[in-house]
Design a protein around this nucleic acid. Structure first.
Lengths: 205, 205
DNA sequence: GTCTATAACTCGATAGAC
DNA sequence: GTCTATCGAGTTATAGAC
């Protein structure tokens, strides 16, 4: 059975915005892909931008089932989970021959100056992503330096993912992504080593 | 005196593509900003895409005088120079209230799938950037681990810059950029420490 | 090399019947 | 809620005089 019209529109827009960006995807493209007529789209969404906002709302909802859960089901160690999440983005690069990257990062650079409300929704997506990663760092706090700033490190991990994906797409090669993730791994191994070999740990410090 | 028409067109396009992106900048916008008429633009450039390619060629030429030289003039230590380059991008964020980021990264995500020749020019810009950073790492090789993969680390540094700039623009805040650069600094300090404290260094190793 | 005028088309969005 | 027809503006690009 066909999904409801509104949902079909959001999915079509999501796919198009991911592969071609927002400006380059015309309303007509969305209509064709969703097999919906113009009148119906504008019944559900006042403007094309409202459709984008609905897509970004959906990404907020999809973080858990599409990004976190699949990664967390594969491994249970909190630090491994961080890299399992990153491996998920690698998988997207592999499957698309390095053509598709992070859907949010995509829209981030394109839309940040064009619409405040869109920018704020993208920021929300980033905040939720970092929060999930930060929780992994909290769960692994016994192996990490006690004075570690987990907010900073979570932002850094998102930075590495987005920067690695960007270079992979530009070079159509996994190499820069893998190099970036491997270097992050080296850094975090050093943090753990420091956490492990430091003198007797004090309670409540 | 007014600059030659062709140069005015490239500069106008450069500014517009930086602040609004390629698709969102119309040819009419470029013409107005450059104070040139349609006929002249199409005398120099066969299409809008050819104009973009000329802009990307100019960025290749501008890497040395606009990005590297100003940073390298301020400091001479090769590792400090890496962070001086990053500070240059921070300055761009500061001056634009976190609205303008890396011009190449901007176009990278927007244009990579739309045109192979554009993607290749963007890749060239990235390669040259990494090469300059790699030279800094070569110049500092005595303080870095002997088995360090400088290609990987240079890619990582570009990753950190691009990812940090992206988050800064989305959140309209320097915080994620500063957090990312500070974490990179921490990592590289650890590499130097390892290089410094490692046992008596063997020659030709 | 530069000018004006405009072709040929696509864009987002709307009207109004059903 | 969905359909078709279409508006008006904006798009890239061209023609042809100067």
């Amino acid at each position: 059975m066909k999904k409801p019209t509104r949902q079909r529109l959001i999915e079509a827009a999501r796919e198009l915005f991911l592969s071609k960006g927002y400006e380059a995807s015309s309303v007509a493209d969305v209509l064709a892909r969703a097999e919906v007529n113009s009148g119906s789209l504008y019944y559900f969404f006042k403007t094309k931008e409202q459709l984008l906002l609905a897509v970004l709302d959906e990404y907020v909802d999809l973080l858990e089932p599409m990004v976190l859960r699949p990664a967390f089901e594969r491994v249970s160690d909190p630090l491994d989970r961080v890299f399992a999440v990153l491996a998920g983005y690698r998988q997207m690069l592999v499957m698309s021959d390095c053509r598709l990257g992070c859907p949010i990062g995509n829209l981030a650079l394109e839309m940040s100056e064009k619409s405040e409300v869109v920018r704020e929704k993208i920021a929300l997506n980033f905040r939720n992503w970092r929060k999930a990663i930060r929780q992994c760092l909290v769960d692994a706090r016994d192996r990490l330096p006690p004075d570690l700033d987990r907010h900073k490190l979570a932002a850094f991990i998102l930075t590495v993912m987005e920067g690695g994906v960007m270079q992979a797409r530009v070079h159509r090669s996994l190499e820069p992504f893998d190099a970036s993730v491997a270097t992050l791994k080296d850094y975090m191994d050093r943090l753990v080593e420091q956490g492990t070999t430091r003198p007797i740990q004090q309670a409540n410090s």
